[in-house]
Design a protein around this nucleic acid. Structure first.
Lengths: 175, 175
DNA sequence: GTACCATTCAATCATCTGATTGATGGAAAG
DNA sequence: CTTTCCATCAATCAGATGATTGAATGGTAC
């Protein structure tokens, strides 16, 4: 799974080969097929691995008023420490267009993310930390879209400074 | 180019085959290779085709104060009328990670988009239509990221209503 | 010691895929 | 009419690719 995950991040679905996965593990192709009968099964495994990894970072922590900022900081740290994760998420998002099973999983993670953000925004609004003119769930889905655009898609703002500036602009808009 | 573009939107780079392109045109593979010696050349052609298509929608129009809203409406209309374009842009963005030439082109289009938005925001700020506490270019790059996340990546908000709500939330945040 | 089972591998298969070749037909040039 | 050039095609190639097979290895149970 680790090898497949790494190769998926490195070459995308376009360049993912069962032979390469087996080679990276240092094992015969037949051995790979012994555990994962088809390439599809391998991919399913990787999807679970990657999504679990992302899910585990969604748990909010810290003082209520600071949770939103903490969440952004957490995502930014994740992007710095494990950039492959966002590449894989992009690959999965794209593949979700043509693969119902993957689409369902991606949708599920998105929904979890958005719900968490919604709750977090409601909290912050009650404390008066943010403006609550917009409905929390609308704002949450917008923020999710922004963060995805910011971290999943490769863009101009790839250097840490640029991302920092963009996140600050986002915080300023919300609060 | 049209056939290759359509197939790229339909199957992604992962499933793009020269044979299928030729078949879609109703022509022999050798004929395709007669005009485009390699698959790479075909792809370059499609990139130019797609990016030109998007670029042509970036020209702002309408009364100064309404240009921002008009821009959002234009993107939304484009997403409705030509959803393939955004799929292709997503494919290109992803491939840009592994293909310097494509990355440069994508970066260029992004920069054009962001500059246009920056100018548009400055206009609106002078008119007092929007808050100008944030630097225009920071805000512009943030908006580009949001729009990309909203339209390029497949998400929960695929139905027109959801997108409408998200765009309205974005407008409310900015103004 | 023998039978059984899980694991691994070298070799191989069938198909896919980008690309090439040599031939054919037809239009333009002389 | 003949020559030349352009466009197209059927056929084919070489390498890649997902998957399978049958044999070998080593460990466990009886």
């Amino acid at each position: 799974m680790q090898a497949a995950y790494d190769l998926l991040a490195e070459r995308g679905f376009e360049g993912l080969r069962t032979r390469d996965i087996a080679a990276k593990v240092g094992v015969n192709i037949a051995t790979l097929h012994y555990y994962y009968p088809t390439k599809e099964k391998v991919i399913r495994g990787v999807v679970g691995y990657a999504m679990g990894r992302f899910r585990s970072t969604l748990q909010p922590a810290g003082s209520p008023g600071e949770q939103l900022r903490a969440h952004f900081a957490g995502i930014r740290r994740l992007a710095r420490d494990e950039p492959e994760l966002f590449v894989v998420m992009g690959e999965l998002a794209m593949r979700g267009r043509r693969d119902r099973a993957i689409a369902a999983i991606v949708r599920d993670v998105d929904a979890t993310w958005q719900k968490m953000l919604t709750a977090l925004l409601r909290h912050a609004a009650k404390e008066g930390a943010i403006d609550n003119s917009a409905k929390a769930d609308d704002l949450a889905s917008l923020i999710v879209a922004t963060l995805k655009g910011l971290f999943i898609l490769p863009g101009d703002g790839r250097d840490a400074k640029e991302v920092d500036r963009q996140l600050r602009a986002l915080e300023r808009l919300i609060t």
